[in-house]
């Protein structure tokens, strides 16, 4: 009964579910962007390594833009200007597009570093066995270089997951946006931010734990 006379209401179990659902959306938008962005970024990293001169004049500056312009500006610009060129993306799709390119730009330098971590003499030895260029990339460079830069890639993953909060400015109800909604209603910012923070931690912690396990296994 009190609900009907009070505008602000307390934090309830439904709100926790609401936050949980929003956390899943954060996970979903991050996972999608990280997956596509990693594939794309690996390709860009390979171009940077292989097409040295051409790539350094074409894609390198573009990637620099994505890396250096604050994500929130990229998101707002893209969301507002894409319709002008006939791309009508909803907040989720806009978020995925920008987060994907942002991830790709970060992964490109990681991937390039990975390729360069494999000594030329190692690749020469593998080619001397009759292993083709592409087989060498897949069976030698990917596993060896990939392990070398795995910690850096995990850093990108965790960063993008946190940065995905910025998609909230487009109105997509992920974890941060959901928290804002609840704070407005319940006027309990500390409690809700603490819960949202716990959710972010719950998403990130297993990743860094697993990453550690892998690294330990590889370094033995």
């Amino acid at each position: 009964m009190q609900d009907s006379i009070s505008f602000f209401t307390g934090f309830g179990i439904n709100d926790l579910l609401f936050l949980g659902e929003a956390a899943l959306k954060t996970l979903w938008i991050s996972a999608l962007s990280i997956a596509i962005g990693t594939l794309l970024g690996t390709f860009f990293g390979w171009l940077l390594h292989e097409g040295k001169l051409v790539a350094s004049f074409t894609i390198a500056p573009i990637l620099d833009v994505f890396r250096s312009v604050p994500l929130i500006i990229q998101l707002v610009l893209f969301y507002n200007f894409a319709p002008i060129i006939g791309l009508n993306f909803d907040p989720f799709a806009s978020g995925v597009v920008i987060l994907t390119f942002y991830t790709a730009a970060l992964v490109a330098s990681v991937a390039r570093g990975g390729i360069e971590a494999v000594p030329a003499s190692m690749r020469r030895a593998s080619r001397s066995l009759g292993i083709s260029y592409w087989q060498d990339l897949f069976y030698v460079v990917l596993p060896i270089g990939g392990r070398a830069v795995f910690p850096a890639w995990i850093g990108v993953v965790l960063g993008v997951m946190k940065d995905s909060a910025l998609v909230s400015v487009l109105g997509y109800v992920e974890l941060l946006k959901a928290s804002q909604v609840l704070i407005t209603r319940t006027q309990e910012p500390l409690l809700i931010l603490a819960i949202a923070g716990a959710f972010y931690f719950a998403l990130s912690y297993p990743i860094s734990r697993y990453a550690n396990k892998f690294e330990q296994r590889w370094s033995k």
């Binding site: 000594p119 003499s121 190692m122 020469r124 030895a125 593998s126 001397s128 066995l129 009759g130 292993i131 083709s132 087989q135 069976y139 030698v140 596993p143 060896i144 392990r147 590889w218």
Partner: peptide, 27 residues
Amino acid sequence: LGMVFQQWNSFPHLTVLENVSLAPRIV
């Protein structure tokens, strides 16, 4: 033409057995 270099260049991510069986398998 088998080739052996000054640097032995073992594939660090593969066991000894896998180091040797990789090329016969994929090539």
